[in-house]
């Protein structure tokens, strides 16, 4: 009986509204993160670390809340979670395989000249624009 009651509560409308409210609070925290981060620096905890946590840490929590409660993965057959986790693994495998080529612009026996030139050109343009008090790397009228 108690178990039945618990089951009903877990999937009642109020329960879904509660999950939604938690999601909204998390959204607000993720928006405030970069604004408040510079004021929250303590010791080794730098502002960019706080922003990363409030941005991506919270995104993972939000995604989990939606998947577990709204998509009902929590009560779905277990193999569906394994299926989805496998796809995420394939994504990470793809990242691991390709990222070194994209993120590094030179190695022991190779050099990505095009990427190096573009980084240099763009950073120079940004620097020059900053010196003129404008934004860089954009077409004319690119202020915001």
């Amino acid at each position: 009986m108690a178990e039945h009651q618990e089951h009903a509560d877990e999937h009642g409308q109020a329960y879904y509204v509660k999950i939604w409210a938690v999601l909204l609070v998390l959204l607000i925290v993720s928006i405030l993160g970069p604004i408040l981060a510079p004021h929250l620096e303590v010791g080794f905890l730098k502002a960019w670390m706080i922003t990363l946590m409030t941005a991506f840490g919270i995104a993972v929590v939000k995604a989990y809340l939606v998947a577990a409660n709204f998509m009902h993965l929590k009560i779905e057959k277990r193999y569906i979670s394994y299926l989805l986790a496998t796809m995420l693994m394939l994504m990470l495998l793809f990242f691991a395989g390709v990222a070194p080529d994209v993120m590094k612009h030179e190695g022991q026996n190779w050099q990505n000249v095009a990427a190096q030139t573009e980084v240099e050109r763009a950073l120079e343009a940004e620097g020059a624009a900053a010196a003129h008090g404008e934004h860089a790397g954009e077409q004319p009228g690119g202020e915001h």
Binding site: F95, V98, V102, E118, V119, A122
Partner: peptide, 15 residues
Amino acid sequence: ASYVMHRLGHPEWAE
């Protein structure tokens, strides 16, 4: 994933 690797490999994208 492609976006993330480009973003990390190109410092000028921050601007």
